[in-house]
């Protein structure tokens, strides 16, 4: 476990913390890190110089109050809705979704993180000029609906929300001024981007000491097959359709049981071994991706 992960675990998932060894400083359990979890990479700190922040965050975590996840309302301010969500931090250095809770009041729209408590983004409703839903396709192929909010100062934010449609509707109703809003607006996928088959897919990743079955999301389009594990930053398998020379059912037993394995012969990667609950759909579509009809998600 690296320090990045450690910080993540400590600050966002305090419940999994195991206090094996405790150092107490001024009655605050400062380093509540199990020895096992502390076996880690310190070069991270060399790069980020984040130790002080880490200590400060750990202190904040240790001292957090029961009311930490509630938004402090101003006098007379009323809460309209609260739901899980997040804010897309998009500056010159980072593009990161920061999870938290989206609070809509009769005056403000706020994205709040619980631990450590921080207002990730905030706008006065009087300054909100437009709100619309956007469809975002993640690298793994999943489609997510996001809420785009534009404000008077020309800035704005892209938010995620547990129920984006509801958030948009309530926002439109709550905002004082006239608001520009429209229905779902997703960029139309090009002819090569429509999914023929999409869903859970196992990939038998070749490794130095023997292959490893890994679970992930497969997405087959006329352009080719892309497979991505949620643990990886990008797809580990990108097979252009033109690279596929043959597809056949496999004989071996896969992670999903008998009859789930199929192999894809490629020019660049040789034989690629995959497995799915319904391999026939993949095999058929892979065999003739240009002619295959679009199927609902697997």
């Amino acid at each position: 476990m690296t320090l990045d992960d450690l910080v993540e675990v400590l600050l966002n998932k305090g419940a999994v913390l195991h206090l094996d060894l405790i150092v107490a400083v001024a009655d605050i359990p400062l380093i509540g890190v199990s020895l096992r979890a502390a076996v880690a990479g310190m070069e991270t700190m060399l790069e980020y110089g984040m130790l002080r922040q880490w200590d400060a965050d750990t202190r904040a975590w240790a001292m957090r109050s029961a009311a930490r996840h509630e938004l402090e309302l101003r006098a007379g301010e009323e809460s309209v809705v609260r739901m899980y969500g997040g804010h897309l931090l998009d500056d010159d250095f980072h593009t990161t979704w920061r999870p938290g809770t989206v609070h809509l009041t009769d005056r403000r729209l706020v994205v709040l993180r619980r631990d450590p408590r921080e207002v990730l983004w905030e706008a006065e409703l009087s300054a909100v000029r437009a709100v619309r839903l956007e469809s975002e396709r993640t690298v793994g192929g999943e489609s997510r609906t996001r809420v785009r909010v534009e404000t008077a100062d020309g800035a704005g934010a892209l938010l995620s929300a547990a129920d984006p449609e509801r958030l948009r509707d309530l926002l439109v109703r709550t905002c004082p001024g006239p608001l520009t809003s429209d229905g779902p607006r997703s960029p139309l996928p090009g002819p090569d981007e429509r999914a023929l088959v999409e869903g859970h897919l196992w990939y038998r990743e070749p490794r130095r000491d023997g292959p490893l079955w890994r679970g992930g999301n497969g997405r087959l389009t006329p352009a080719g097959l892309v497979w991505k594990s949620p643990l990886d930053a990008r797809p580990a398998l990108v097979l252009p359709a033109a690279d596929v020379t043959a597809v056949r059912p496999g004989a071996e037993r896969g992670p999903g049981g008998e009859g789930t394995v199929f192999t894809v012969e490629t020019g660049s990667r040789g034989t690629v071994t995959l497995a799915a609950d319904e391999p026939r759909r993949w095999v058929e579509a892979l065999g003739s991706p240009r002619d295959a009809p679009a199927l609902p998600s697997a």
Binding site: M1, T2, V39, G215, P255
Partner: peptide, 26 residues
């Protein structure tokens, strides 16, 4: 080369956030 800072976790007892995916070796 460095000491194995990122690989020193004890993945044999309990889940580890960043360890290799829990899939069977085939």
């Amino acid at each position: 080369p460095w000491p194995p800072y990122s690989f020193a976790d004890l993945s044999d007892d309990g889940p580890q956030g960043a360890s290799a995916p829990a899939a069977a070796r085939g």
